[in-house]
């Protein structure tokens, strides 16, 4: 934690994430309007004191939709990464702990998944399963666990032969106990780093899917589909694309800065040893 506080970029990332998360959680309290309230008389109004970020093609308040969209976009990112991390930990632990054929099978599976163009895979599956927020989270999760698996496996392989692990094993500790009490806690830091970075990618993937019409579906607001709504009027109704675009940019930046800052701080090799 101290290390983050010392790294201004990581600190900035943390603050960004905190603010955005706060806005997402308290969206119903902060939002000045109902995000779905249509007003045919106030279509495409430019930002003003009553509509901070203007209104969209149905007269809905963009600021309120952005706040509720933050919930969806962050939810997609976090749940997808959660799924990927759980799968990654389980498979990585199995491969790294038991080695042998389990390792071979799992690592081949990792190779297979790594060689398929992931975005193609996501695109195909979501199109076939119909794009709903749950499908999007699950599919992004199911296609992005390989990195975590490799990380966990590598950590386990190197930790397994450490003295403290060998010692508890000789003392007759059960496998599960070893995995959960000894190995996993010791490999937590790289997992956290990769999860934080994963959220950033997932938010971007959702916006890309929205552009292709396969993201979170209207009328539910996500940053991706608000941005896509505005893309045809990029210079006329600039507020429709500028605000969601910036929101995605800043949030993804925030997660990246925090992730890289954490990596720098936790990785003894790259940390500044003065």
């Amino acid at each position: 934690m101290n290390a983050i506080l010392k790294n201004p970029l990581a600190l900035a990332g943390l603050i960004i994430i905190a603010i955005i998360s706060f806005m997402a959680v308290f969206a119903p309290l902060i939002a000045p309007f109902d995000p779905d309230a249509i007003n045919v008389k106030s279509i495409l109004l430019a930002p003003s004191s009553s509509h901070w970020m203007g209104t969209d093609g149905l007269g809905r308040d963009v600021y309120s939709r952005m706040l509720f969209g933050a919930r969806i976009s962050l939810l997609v990112g976090i749940v997808a990464v959660g799924i990927a991390t759980i799968i990654g930990i389980v498979l990585g632990a199995l491969a790294g702990f038991y080695r042998g054929w389990a390792d071979t099978v799992i690592m081949r599976l990792v190779d297979v998944m790594l060689s398929i163009p992931t975005f193609f895979l996501i695109l195909a599956v979501i199109a076939f399963l119909t794009p709903s927020i749950w499908n999007i989270m699950i599919v992004i999760g199911l296609t992005s666990w390989m990195g975590v698996t490799r990380l966990v496996r590598a950590e386990f392989l190197s930790l397994r032969n450490r003295e403290f692990v060998l010692a508890s094993q000789t003392l007759g500790a059960q496998d599960s106990r070893l995995i959960f009490k000894q190995l996993l806690p010791n490999s937590l830091t790289p997992i956290i780093v990769s999860s934080v970075l994963g959220v950033a990618s997932a938010v971007l993937v959702e916006s890309g899917l929205s552009f292709l019409g396969l993201g979170v579906q209207a009328p539910q607001a996500s940053w991706g589909n608000i941005l896509t709504d505005g893309k045809e009027y990029i210079e006329f109704a600039w507020w429709l694309s500028l605000f969601p675009g910036l929101a995605i940019l800043i949030t993804v930046m925030g997660y990246n800065l925090l992730g890289e800052g954490l990596r720098d701080a936790l990785d003894p090799r790259t940390s500044n040893n003065k």
Binding site: F128, T130, A218, P219
Partner: peptide, 8 residues
């Protein structure tokens, strides 16, 4: 409201 891609 549920919005679905055409083929599906």
């Amino acid at each position: 409201i549920r919005v679905v891609e055409w083929a599906t």
